[in-house]
Design a protein around this nucleic acid. Structure first.
Length: 465
RNA sequence: GGCGCCUUGGCGGAGUGGUUACGCAGCGGCCUGCAAAGCCGUGUACGCCGGUUCGACUCCGGCAGGCGCCUCCA
């Protein structure tokens, strides 16, 4: 809120609440950024010994859901369920596990109604024609997050509801049931549904407990009015701050323009995952600092693929001793027990690299700097073997959600391929290079890339597999 | 107009008052039968104009350009 960085108190639980998507369509890369950033932040904090708990909500009640459902001619609840499932599937494919809690607005109606009631009782909200509005002028600190004077603001969620407000600044906590809306809930003010902002205030304290919690996150486009309104609601109702620290991720941009559903310049997460693979998508998202805008394009994704291939190659020649390499999929959200700072079993040089990597993350979660430490170490260890290099790299990769690079994605070569490889080795020994190259091409056709080394030839799956 | 942010080499993207970020691409070389992988080397990078300073890409001021929010949006 002050724009300054803060040091977390290690003795307290670190509750993290990040605003998730509104589920009226499939999510795009931009929506994936906060999911990745805050999932990894929670992962990092846990590995540093903090009692971190991450909540990312799903907004499944919203005007846009009604509109989108009407266009498709299906019930809004059905659309919301479908898109919620798609969201879980798409983000699940990122391989980062799930947040500790993922509350739905539709499951939080009771706490929402209670919170609104508290605000009405305290005089910070009023009922008007079946709607309930938050009285912005009743809350002194309004505008402190986004640094705006109240005189310059006017908000109306949409359109015609303005006439029911006492003040144009006010925003809706509860909206009465309207014609054409196929879902509604009971409340002391009649049937209706919650406004957009109140759900987050209610869900956050439901899931994270007493205010304030440690970190509130979300996209920078939510600073005003969404987060400003959350602060107003929660602080007015509880007399305590909502969150201690606010972390806002920058926007993904195409051609220097924010990617957004309303701009129509979106690139769906599922398509990116299909075309470039989950590791490349994650590697792309950690390539910039979370606060800054990040340029998006196919070139950027292709670069991420190249980076990820480089790391995979390193792990092939520096296999980690830990179980990650030969084990199956990691337990969701957990992964290996990453050793804390300085506790690693690796040698000095490798341990120092991990420390520098962790230091970068500890400094306002600077993932690009952390990645530069990783690549620095990879180059060094490629130049001259370093003891424990594989384990160190896996630990670093785990911290940014890329530990799957240590797994063999495909089964090993079959006997046919190995036979061809043996034939090629024989041909080379006979200095019959035309024959050897022909066999290499044949293997390429089967999806194998031949790599010769001093220890002999090996087969590696093509296309990064 | 108000609030906030940004401008780094071909591209992406960190960072610091005085040493190479890092990655991708390019070029030259090493290794190799040839490749691949890897390694080494390489490109007067910090929008413009002033100021502070022994010294600024890094601090201050101004200018130009760009972006986000101010209506739903990660």
């Amino acid at each position: 809120m002050s724009g300054e960085r803060r040091v977390l108190d290690p003795s307290e639980e670190v509750g993290i609440y990040a605003c998730g998507p509104t589920v009226y369509s499939r999510i795009h890369i931009g929506n994936a950024r906060p999911f990745v950033v805050f999932s990894l932040l929670a992962r990092f904090l846990k590995s540093e010994g903090y009692a971190a708990r991450l909540a990312i909500n799903v907004t499944d009640i919203n005007d846009k859901i009604y509109t989108a459902a009407a266009e498709r001619g299906i019930p809004s609840g059905e659309l919301a369920r479908e898109m919620t499932a798609a969201y879980f599937e798409d983000t699940g494919r990122l391989g980062l596990g799930r947040p500790d809690a993922e509350p739905l607005a539709t499951d939080t109606i009771k706490p929402i109604v209670e919170l609104i009631s508290d605000l009405v009782e305290s005089g910070n909200a009023y009922e008007s024609g079946g709607d309930v509005y938050f009285s912005v002028r009743s809350f002194e600190g309004y505008g402190k997050l986004s640094h705006r004077p109240t005189e310059t603001m006017e908000q109306g969620e949409g359109d015609d509801a303005g006439s029911l407000k006492r003040d144009p600044l006010d925003f809706a906590l509860w909206k009465s049931h309207k014609e054409g809306e196929d879902t509604h809930w009971e409340s002391p003010w009649g049937p209706g549904r919650p406004g957009w902002h109140i759900e987050c205030s209610a869900m956050a304290e439901e899931v994270l407990g007493d205010l304030p919690f440690a970190i509130h996150g979300g996209g920078s486009d939510l600073v005003f009015p969404h987060h400003e309104n959350e602060i107003a609601q929660s602080e007015a109702a509880r007399g305590r701050p909502l969150a201690k620290v606010w972390m806002h991720n920058g926007m993904i941009e195409t051609k220097a323009e924010k990617m957004s559903k309303s701009e129509g310049n979106i690139f769906q997460l599922s398509e990116a995952l299909d075309r470039f693979g989950s590791e490349a998508v994650v590697a792309y998202l950690v390539s910039g600092h979370y606060r800054q805008p990040l340029a998006f394009g196919e070139e950027q994704l292709n670069e991420a693929v190249a980076r990820v291939d480089r790391l995979r190659n390193f792990l092939r020649s520096n296999p980690p001793a830990s179980a990650v390499a030969d084990g199956g999929p990691l337990p969701p959200g957990n992964g290996p027990e990453a050793p804390g700072r300085g506790e690693g079993a690796h040698s000095g040089e490798a341990a120092h690299a991990v420390d520098r990597f962790r230091d970068a993350l500890a400094d306002d979660f600077n993932t690009p700097r952390a990645m530069s430490e990783l690549f620095d170490f990879v180059r060094t260890a490629n130049h001259e073997p370093v003891a424990g290099a594989g384990d160190a790299v896996v630990e670093m990769l785990w911290l940014v959600g890329l530990e799957s690079l240590a797994e063999a994605r495909q089964s090993g070569p079959d006997e046919g391929a190995l036979g061809l490889l043996a034939e090629r080795e024989q041909a080379r020994a006979d200095r019959n290079f035309d024959r050897a190259d022909g066999l290499r091409d044949e293997l390429a056709g089967l999806g194998w890339e031949v790599r010769d080394s001093a220890e002999g030839a090996t087969l590696v799956p093509r296309n990064g597999g």
